[in-house]
Protein backbone atom coordinates (compact mmCIF):
# COMPACT_ATOMS: atom_id res chain seq x y z
CA UNK A 1 0.00 0.00 0.00
CA UNK A 2 1.40 3.33 -0.89
CA UNK A 3 1.35 6.23 1.45
CA UNK A 4 -0.43 9.28 0.11
CA UNK A 5 0.14 12.85 1.14
CA UNK A 6 -3.49 13.01 2.26
CA UNK A 7 -2.98 10.14 4.72
CA UNK A 8 0.10 11.78 6.22
CA UNK A 9 -1.80 15.01 6.58
CA UNK A 10 -4.74 13.31 8.31
CA UNK A 11 -2.47 11.43 10.70
CA UNK A 12 -0.65 14.62 11.67
CA UNK A 13 -3.85 16.61 12.19
CA UNK A 14 -5.29 13.78 14.26
CA UNK A 15 -2.21 13.47 16.44
CA UNK A 16 -1.38 17.12 16.99
CA UNK A 17 -4.93 18.52 16.96
CA UNK A 18 -4.45 21.43 14.64
CA UNK A 19 -1.03 22.49 15.90
CA UNK A 20 0.57 21.30 12.70
CA UNK A 21 -0.46 23.83 10.10
CA UNK A 22 0.32 25.33 6.72
CA UNK A 23 -0.14 22.22 4.60
CA UNK A 24 0.92 22.69 1.03
CA UNK A 25 2.17 20.57 -1.83
CA UNK A 26 4.65 22.50 -3.93
CA UNK A 27 5.83 20.26 -6.78
CA UNK A 28 4.18 17.27 -5.15
CA UNK A 29 6.11 17.34 -1.91
CA UNK A 30 3.97 17.63 1.20
CA UNK A 31 5.09 20.64 3.21
CA UNK A 32 3.89 21.68 6.64
CA UNK A 33 5.00 23.57 9.69
CA UNK A 34 4.75 23.16 13.43
CA UNK A 35 5.43 25.39 16.44
CA UNK A 36 9.07 25.21 17.39
CA UNK A 37 8.41 23.60 20.78
CA UNK A 38 6.88 20.64 18.97
CA UNK A 39 9.62 19.97 16.44
CA UNK A 40 11.04 16.94 18.23
CA UNK A 41 7.59 15.53 19.00
CA UNK A 42 6.60 15.75 15.37
CA UNK A 43 9.88 14.22 14.17
CA UNK A 44 9.58 11.44 16.73
CA UNK A 45 6.00 10.72 15.71
CA UNK A 46 6.95 10.62 12.04
CA UNK A 47 9.85 8.32 12.89
CA UNK A 48 8.03 5.90 15.19
CA UNK A 49 4.65 5.60 13.56
CA UNK A 50 4.23 2.23 11.90
CA UNK A 51 2.48 3.70 8.93
CA UNK A 52 4.54 6.82 8.35
CA UNK A 53 8.10 5.54 8.95
CA UNK A 54 9.98 8.71 8.05
CA UNK A 55 13.31 7.41 9.25
CA UNK A 56 15.77 8.99 6.86
CA UNK A 57 16.81 12.60 7.31
CA UNK A 58 17.77 13.74 3.85
CA UNK A 59 18.57 17.32 4.59
CA UNK A 60 18.34 20.00 7.21
CA UNK A 61 18.93 23.68 6.67
CA UNK A 62 17.70 27.14 7.56
CA UNK A 63 16.24 30.01 5.60
CA UNK A 64 16.25 33.64 6.70
CA UNK A 65 13.16 35.78 6.11
CA UNK A 66 14.02 39.22 7.55
CA UNK A 67 10.55 40.59 6.81
CA UNK A 68 8.62 38.25 9.09
CA UNK A 69 8.95 39.65 12.61
CA UNK A 70 8.99 36.92 15.25
CA UNK A 71 9.56 34.16 12.74
CA UNK A 72 12.61 35.23 10.85
CA UNK A 73 14.41 31.92 10.72
CA UNK A 74 12.94 28.77 9.27
CA UNK A 75 14.59 25.44 9.92
CA UNK A 76 13.64 23.03 7.18
CA UNK A 77 13.81 19.25 7.48
CA UNK A 78 13.56 17.03 4.44
CA UNK A 79 12.48 13.56 5.48
CA UNK A 80 12.26 10.44 3.40
CA UNK A 81 10.28 7.28 3.92
CA UNK A 82 12.46 4.81 2.06
CA UNK A 83 9.96 1.97 2.22
CA UNK A 84 7.07 3.73 0.51
CA UNK A 85 9.41 6.20 -1.17
CA UNK A 86 7.66 9.36 0.01
CA UNK A 87 9.39 12.62 0.79
CA UNK A 88 8.07 15.39 3.01
CA UNK A 89 9.28 18.81 4.05
CA UNK A 90 8.79 20.01 7.59
CA UNK A 91 9.42 23.57 8.70
CA UNK A 92 9.85 25.18 12.06
CA UNK A 93 9.94 28.94 12.43
CA UNK A 94 11.75 30.78 15.17
CA UNK A 95 12.47 34.39 16.07
CA UNK A 96 15.94 35.71 15.43
CA UNK A 97 16.44 37.21 18.90
CA UNK A 98 16.42 33.86 20.62
CA UNK A 99 16.73 31.26 17.86
CA UNK A 100 16.49 28.16 19.99
CA UNK A 101 15.05 24.88 18.84
CA UNK A 102 15.58 21.32 20.00
CA UNK A 103 18.21 19.20 18.40
CA UNK A 104 17.36 16.11 16.37
CA UNK A 105 20.71 14.45 17.00
CA UNK A 106 19.23 11.82 19.29
CA UNK A 107 16.95 10.70 16.52
CA UNK A 108 19.30 11.03 13.57
CA UNK A 109 23.08 10.83 13.87
CA UNK A 110 23.28 12.62 10.54
CA UNK A 111 21.69 15.71 12.10
CA UNK A 112 24.90 16.37 14.03
CA UNK A 113 26.88 18.07 11.31
CA UNK A 114 23.83 19.39 9.50
CA UNK A 115 22.84 21.27 12.64
CA UNK A 116 26.37 22.49 13.12
CA UNK A 117 26.32 23.83 9.58
CA UNK A 118 22.97 25.53 10.21
CA UNK A 119 24.31 27.06 13.40
CA UNK A 120 27.45 28.15 11.59
CA UNK A 121 25.62 30.03 8.86
CA UNK A 122 22.39 31.16 10.53
CA UNK A 123 23.07 31.06 14.25
CA UNK A 124 20.24 28.70 15.05
CA UNK A 125 20.91 27.44 18.54
CA UNK A 126 20.10 23.74 18.71
CA UNK A 127 19.33 23.04 22.35
CA UNK A 128 20.87 19.78 23.51
CA UNK A 129 23.32 19.39 20.65
CA UNK A 130 26.44 17.54 21.85
CA UNK A 131 28.98 19.74 20.10
CA UNK A 132 27.48 22.91 18.69
CA UNK A 133 30.52 24.69 17.27
CA UNK A 134 31.29 26.18 13.89
CA UNK A 135 32.10 23.65 11.22
CA UNK A 136 32.91 25.28 7.89
CA UNK A 137 33.77 28.82 8.93
CA UNK A 138 36.65 29.98 11.09
CA UNK A 139 36.12 29.51 14.82
CA UNK A 140 36.77 33.16 15.67
CA UNK A 141 34.02 34.44 13.39
CA UNK A 142 31.44 36.42 15.37
CA UNK A 143 28.57 36.70 12.91
CA UNK A 144 26.36 34.37 10.88
CA UNK A 145 27.20 35.00 7.25
CA UNK A 146 24.20 33.51 5.44
CA UNK A 147 21.74 35.88 7.07
CA UNK A 148 20.27 38.40 4.71
CA UNK A 149 21.76 41.40 6.51
CA UNK A 150 25.10 40.49 4.97
CA UNK A 151 24.52 41.07 1.28
CA UNK A 152 27.13 40.15 -1.27
CA UNK A 153 29.01 43.00 -2.79
CA UNK A 154 26.93 45.18 -5.07
CA UNK A 155 28.11 44.34 -8.56
CA UNK A 156 27.63 47.84 -9.87
CA UNK A 157 29.59 49.63 -7.14
CA UNK A 158 32.00 52.23 -8.47
CA UNK A 159 33.98 53.20 -5.39
CA UNK A 160 36.54 50.49 -6.04
CA UNK A 161 39.89 51.47 -7.44
CA UNK A 162 40.27 49.20 -10.42
CA UNK A 163 43.99 49.76 -10.60
CA UNK A 164 44.35 47.92 -7.34
CA UNK A 165 42.88 44.86 -8.99
CA UNK A 166 44.99 44.99 -12.13
CA UNK A 167 42.15 46.23 -14.30
CA UNK A 168 43.16 49.89 -14.52
Amino acid sequence: MTLSNETIKQRLIEKFEGQVIGFDEPYGMLTFEAPKELNLKVLQFLFDDNELKFRFLTDLQAVHYPNQPGRELAVVYHLHNLIDNVRIRFKVFTGIIQPEIFTATNLFSSANWMERETYDFYGVNFVGHPNLIRILNADEMDYFPMRKEYPLEEQTRIDKDDEMFGRG
Partner: peptide
Protein backbone atom coordinates in the same frame (compact mmCIF):
# COMPACT_ATOMS: atom_id res chain seq x y z
CA UNK B 1 8.44 31.85 -7.35
CA UNK B 2 8.48 28.38 -5.89
CA UNK B 3 10.14 25.95 -3.61
CA UNK B 4 11.65 22.81 -5.02
CA UNK B 5 13.82 19.95 -3.89
CA UNK B 6 15.34 17.76 -6.51
CA UNK B 7 18.10 15.22 -6.29
CA UNK B 8 20.24 13.08 -8.52
CA UNK B 9 22.36 10.05 -7.86
CA UNK B 10 25.81 11.59 -7.73
CA UNK B 11 29.05 9.68 -7.61
CA UNK B 12 28.86 9.57 -3.84
CA UNK B 13 25.14 9.42 -3.28
CA UNK B 14 22.12 11.61 -3.24
CA UNK B 15 23.12 15.06 -4.40
CA UNK B 16 20.18 17.29 -3.58
CA UNK B 17 19.35 20.85 -4.50
CA UNK B 18 16.89 22.79 -2.39
CA UNK B 19 15.96 25.91 -4.28
CA UNK B 20 13.66 28.66 -3.06
Amino acid sequence: PGEVYSSVEGGNGELGFYLI
